[in-house]
Amino acid sequence: MQVSSARGAVLLIGVTLVLSCGCGGSSDTGSPDSPRSAAAAGAVPVVASTNVYGDLVEQIGGDKVDVISIISDPAQDPHSYEASTQNQLSLSKAKLVVANGGGYDDFIGRMLRSADNPSVDVIDAVQVSGKAPAEGGEFNEHVWYDVPTVDKLTDQIADALAKAAPADADVFRQNAKAFKEELTSLQAEEAQIKEDHEGAAVAVTEPVPLYMTEASGLRNSTPEDFSEAVEEGDDVSPGVLRETLELFTDRRVEALVYNEQTSGPQTEKVKEAAEDNGVPVVPVTETLPRGEDYVSWMTANVDALKSALDG
C-alpha cells in the first residue's frame, strides 16, 4: 500500500519505521522543503496518518499549517504499521490529527492513547463519510476514493483549522471552497464515465478503488473471496483463483483495476491473464505518488479508467 506529499522535493526524516508484515521500508514524514509545508512561524501543527490526508490539509491550510504525514512510502502498509518515537513526539505536539479510521490506520489510535495531548482535535474520515458495512458484508474503508467523502472532509478540516487559528479562518475557508470546486470537476468526470459505460463489468485485485468504480457506474465482477484474501494478505484458494482468471480468458470484464502497492504472485497471475487476453489494466495506488496532489492523482486515475473503457 502507499503514500507521498503534494508539491516539491521530499526530505526523508531519519527514523526507521518498523512494519509487522512483509511491507518493509522507511517512511517520509512530510515535505519540509516544499513551498506548501515550509510553514511560517506559528503555523498549526498537524499530523496525518498518510500523505493523502496530509495533502488535503496542505491544500486547505497552505503555509498556515505544518503537516507531518506519517506514511508516505508506497512500500508501507498502514494496516500493520508500528509507531516510532518520532511519530509519538509529533502527535504529542499536534493541534489536529487526520486519520482514515475504519481499521485502516489503527496505529494512530494506539499512539494517541499515550501521546499526552488531550486537547488535540481528531478527524476520522470514515466517521465523516457516514458509511457503514452492509449487513453481513465487508466494509470498504478506503474512503479517500469516494469524492463526496473528501468533500465533507474538506469542510471538517477547514473548521478544525479555523478553531486552532481563528485569525486565519477566512483563509482556510476560502482555500476549502476552491478545493471543493476542483472536486466538483472530478465528480463530473466520473459521471461522464457512468453515462458512457453504466453497467460495464470490471475486476479489481482488492477493494481499494471500488468507490471510484461505483461512482462511475461500473459493476464489480471480482469473486469476493479473491479481493478479500488479497487485502488481508491471505492465500487465494485454487478454485477462487481459477474463477478469477476466467474473467479474463472469457473476456467477461472490460478492465482490471490493479492495486500496484499490494502485488504478489496471485495478483500478478491475474494481471498477466488480463494482459494476455487484451483486457486493459488500470493501475491504482493507496497513497499519493511523488509530485502529485489529491486532485491530480485522482484525475489521473479516473482518466485512466475512462481510457480503458473507451478502448
Rank of each mutant, 00 (worst) to 15 (best):
N220W: 09
T222Y: 05
P223W: 01
P223K: 01
E224P: 00
F226L: 13
F226I: 12
S227W: 12
V230N: 10
V230W: 00
V230F: 02
E231D: 12
E231Y: 13
E232N: 14
G233T: 05
D234A: 13
D234G: 10
D235E: 15
D235S: 14
D235G: 10
D235V: 01
V236E: 04
V236I: 14
P238H: 01
G239A: 15
V240S: 04
L241G: 12
L241H: 07
L241A: 14
T244R: 06
T244Y: 01
L245A: 12
L245N: 06
E246P: 00
L247E: 01
F248L: 09
F248N: 11
T249H: 03
D250E: 14
D250H: 10
R252M: 06
R252I: 03
V253G: 00
V253A: 03
V253S: 04
A255C: 13
V257H: 06
V257M: 10
V257Q: 08
V257W: 07
V257G: 03
Y258P: 08
N259K: 06
N259I: 11
N259V: 14
E260R: 13
Q261N: 15
S263K: 14
Q266E: 15
K269Y: 05
K269F: 08
K269D: 10
V270G: 05
E272N: 14
E272A: 15
A273V: 05
A274D: 08
A274T: 02
E275N: 11
E275L: 12
D276G: 09
G278T: 07
V279D: 00
V279R: 00
V281T: 08
V281M: 08
P283M: 02
V284C: 11
T285H: 13
E286F: 08
R290W: 02
G291V: 06
E292N: 13
D293Q: 12
D293L: 02
Y294T: 05
V295I: 15
V295H: 03
S296P: 00
W297S: 13
W297G: 13
W297Q: 10
